[in-house]
Structure formats: structure tokens, C-alpha cells
Amino acid sequence: MRKHFSGPLGKSVVILGVAYLLLEFGIAYIPPLFGVDSGPIPDSVLLQYMVTVAIGILLWVSFNETLWEEFKAPLHAAMVEPRQRRTRVALIVLVPVLVGLMTFNSVRPSIAAPPSLRSIHPAPPGQIDFQGRSMELAGVENPLRSVGSPEEHYLEGRRVYYQNCLPCHGDGLAGRGHYAQGFNPGPASFQDVGTIAQLTESYVFWRVAKGGPGLPNEGAPWNSAMPAWEDFLTEDEIWSVILFMYEQAGHEPRTWEEEGEEH
């Protein structure tokens, strides 16, 4: 058995196998051991990673002639040598069957909606109509940061959050409210570095005010259950809840780049 895995071909198979295990199960189950949140990766990403690894392996075995010959030798042997007839027959049967299965799998009709490209942070409009009046988004910061006491805004934001947002986005702002399981896509986790920490406050304002119905085309499919909060909250309430969210999640909002500044 050992000798099968000592040549470059054997090593390649082992590397591919280990990479597969790491990607499919490792990513999902190892980080939680260290207290880091994780989950299984989708097939599309798995495929992408595996192809990259496979290309890397092919490059490695063809670095120099000796390695390349050693890599090809077992394959060559399996194709021509009389005593490897069984392997050959097995390969000739298995490979087409595998390809057939894959083809069947990909064309099999299914009731599931097609996997779709949903941009989580679609491009925001430059201005929106907020409660019937036009409002600029570009360059806007939370107006509450410059007026009144931060403490008060925070408390107000907390009230708004607990009255309206809690059922879905949850107590810990991690998108794990009581109703969260019912939604697909699920409510956003504000703890995540990929959500509000990446966005300007005016972007968050836009998303809160317009909700799922206000998503532009590339945010499709339209199954976000987020209501358009402009119908229920005032402008100041929305700004205060945004303030609360950043404060509570411990993130800083993304700031606007200053006009004309060069880096």
C-alpha cells in the first residue's frame, strides 16, 4: 500500500484528498473548536478551490523531467501493461459512469429556485426619496453624532431596536432573533465584520429605510423580509438605531473619502 503513495501520482492523490477533507469539513468544523463561527462552504466555492489546488499539483509534478516521468509512469502502465488489465477495465468503466452521474446531476430537473447571484451590498443610489422628500446619501454622516447628547441618542436607539429589530436581528445583534430561522436569506448579523463594519452610515440608513422591497436589481432574488422602515419610523429614530447598532456591535462606520484627497 505504502508504495502506491510514494510516487508523485500517489502524493498528488493524497494531497487532493486532504485538501478536499480540509475544505469540505475542515472549514466547517475546525474554527468552531477555537470559538470562531463557521459553516460549510457552498459547492461553487469548493469547486473553485479544488480546481486551484489541482492546477497547483499539476504544475508541481511537471517542474522537471524526472518528476513528470515518474508522475506519468503509473498512468501509462495502467493503460498498457497486460498485468494491470483489471485496473484498466475498472478505469474504463468508472470514468464514464462518473461523468455520466455528474451530467445527470447537473441537468436533473429540480423544484428548487435556481442558485442566484445575490449581491449582499448592492450599489446604493446617490439619493433616495425618504417619506416623500428627496434625500442625498452620498457623503452623509449620522446627523445625530453632531447634535445632542450621544447618551440620549443611544438610549433612544436601544428603545427603537428592542421594539422593532429584536425579533429578527436578535438580542446580540448577531442575526439570531426568534424569527430568524424563518427567513431566507436570514437576518444580517451586525457582529460580522462583513456587514455594517464595511458600510457607511448612510448606506445602512438606505437599507433600513427601504428594506427588502427597495433592493435594486443586483440584490435579487427579492426574498429579503426586511420591511421598509420609513413607513414606521421617523428619520431621527432610524439614525438613532443606527448609532445604537454601531455602538453595541463595537464597530466603526465606514467613513467617506474626502473629495480630492490623494493617497
Partner: peptide
């Protein structure tokens, strides 16, 4: 299943 979007969006 209810998968059709409101066509006014597009």
C-alpha cells in the same frame, strides 16, 4: 412555491 418577484422591480 412563492418564488416569483414583483415585476415592477425590474
Amino acid at each position: 412555491s412563492p418564488i416569483m418577484p414583483d415585476m415592477r422591480r425590474s
